[in-house]
């Protein structure tokens, strides 16, 4: 996983609630066997018209938001499927942080496997950031260690984040490597279960 410590990047507003994973990356892009390259399908139906031309009014197509690294979105971002292609697509496109009032569970969890930082702020804070992001000077600074988002105006918001998730993301730790440190515990658990539930061993 890519570590996340600090990010200073353009923030793009996407003031829409319930942006589902089918909108983030539609199913036709899930046929890949790679993690890379999914940025081309990000927000596909919002970014392109039926002829494949860029929709000039879509926020990420507008020149002032080119290279945006932060997305400020409406409630319940990432609802729907378990596809990790959604965070992969956002990352591949250059987005490293999504700010919203709430995230769907599986998407939220998937973000932490990839170094994409999901930041939960209060509704009025998201609204304030959204407004600022609509303006011209829209670089936001996100500091994971300090758990702060500094808006373009300099206004600072703090956010809550699970301590373990934060620690792992700061270091970019490999979760599998961490869990394998507990391999002896897994061995013991399996031996006990084999005795207690022998029918599962016969399957």
């Amino acid at each position: 996983m890519q570590a996340f410590t600090r990010l200073d990047a353009k923030a793009a507003p996407l003031p829409q609630a319930n942006i589902d994973t089918d909108q983030i990356i539609p199913a036709q892009f899930l046929k890949t066997v790679e993690r890379e390259g999914l940025g081309r399908g990000l927000f596909f139906a919002m970014r392109f018209d039926a002829q494949g031309n860029e929709r000039p009014d879509f926020v990420l197509n507008r020149p002032e938001y080119k290279g945006a690294g932060v997305l400020v979105a409406g409630d319940n971002f990432g609802c729907g499927s378990s596809r990790e292609h959604a965070p992969w697509a956002l990352m591949d496109f250059g987005i490293r942080c999504v700010i919203s009032t709430s995230f769907a569970d599986i998407f939220y969890n998937n973000c932490f496997q990839n170094g994409l930082l999901p930041v939960v702020l209060k509704a009025d804070e998201v609204q304030a950031l959204m407004e600022e992001a609509k303006g011209g000077n829209h670089v936001a600074s996100i500091d994971l260690e300090a758990q702060t988002v500094v808006a373009p105006s300099g206004r600072t918001f703090t956010f809550e984040i699970d301590a373990q998730r934060k620690a792992k993301m700061l270091q970019g730790l490999d979760a599998i490597g961490e869990t394998l440190r507990a391999a002896p515990d897994i061995d013991v658990y399996e031996m006990r279960q084999a005795l207690a539930k022998p029918w599962l061993e016969e399957a």
Partner: peptide, 20 residues
Amino acid sequence: QGIGTSEVEHVLATQTLRQK
């Protein structure tokens, strides 16, 4: 529960998940 691909890899490798 549904999981993402990184967790699929985690379960393949460890037969466990990390969760709260």
